[in-house]
């Protein structure tokens, strides 16, 4: 996972609340066997609507999302995060996130920042007035800047630390690599091995 400190990219206003994971990525895409390549699946039901925000040229290359409250509710599918990530999103802001979605995001390097409804509204207006505006997401100082608006956002300390360090779950465990190797040296010889294969 890449370290996340300060990032700037095109900001996208998503004027909807209760965007559940079925809307982020419908179930039909769960049949796939890869962990990447879900960019086309993101918001797939809405993408056919020419008025949908990501279909507007100014927002098409968006990478910082500002959504209404209760983002990421519903099924726990990790694919929702993969789809946002694969489309190019690095950060999502909302006044309220579903817990599981937020947990999954942290593991994949997607920043989820909580800002107030009023701040969201102000940013939406700024983006609608000047489409294509960039947002500067500063995880070090926990603030996001759009035009001349700068707002503080909330993110839990542990997730923030992991994102700043660029540590996914596995990376985190591998910091204990030496302990794992030591443990392996202590394992009893009777414990089973699948290789070389016996039996067949």
């Amino acid at each position: 996972m890449e370290k996340f400190e300060v990032y700037s990219g095109v900001a996208v206003p998503l004027r909807r609340s209760n965007v559940d994971t079925d809307q982020i990525i419908p179930a039909v895409f769960l049949k796939r066997i890869t962990k990447t390549g879900y960019d086309d699946a993101l918001f797939s039901a809405w993408r056919s609507d020419p008025d949908f925000v990501l279909n507007q040229p100014a927002f098409a290359k968006g990478s910082v999302l500002f959504a209404g409250p209760d983002f990421g509710t519903g099924s726990s599918r990790e694919h929702a995060v993969w789809a946002l990530r694969d489309y190019g999103f690095k950060a999502v802001f909302s006044s309220k996130f579903a817990d599981i979605f937020r947990g999954n995001s942290g593991k994949q390097g997607l920043v989820t920042g909580v800002i107030s409804d009023n701040e969201t509204e102000a940013i939406w207006r700024a983006l609608e007035a000047t489409p294509g505006l960039e947002a500067k997401v500063d995880l070090v100082n926990r603030e996001v800047t759009v035009g001349d608006l700068t707002v503080k956002f909330e993110i839990d300390e542990y997730t923030r630390w992991r994102l700043l360090e660029g540590l996914d779950d596995i990376g985190l465990t591998l910091r204990d690599e030496q302990s794992i190797t030591d443990f392996e040296a202590r394992r009893e010889p009777w414990r089973p091995k699948t290789l070389p294969a016996k039996g067949a």
Binding site: I33, T36, I180, E184
Partner: peptide
């Protein structure tokens, strides 16, 4: 706690994205 795993059984439904994740990293 971090626990050691002695035996990991794998089947086709829940493993493809896991292997893809390894490949990615």
């Amino acid at each position: 706690d971090l626990l050691y795993i002695d035996l990991h059984l794998v089947h086709e439904v829940t493993s493809p994205q896991a292997f893809d994740g390894l490949r990615l990293a």
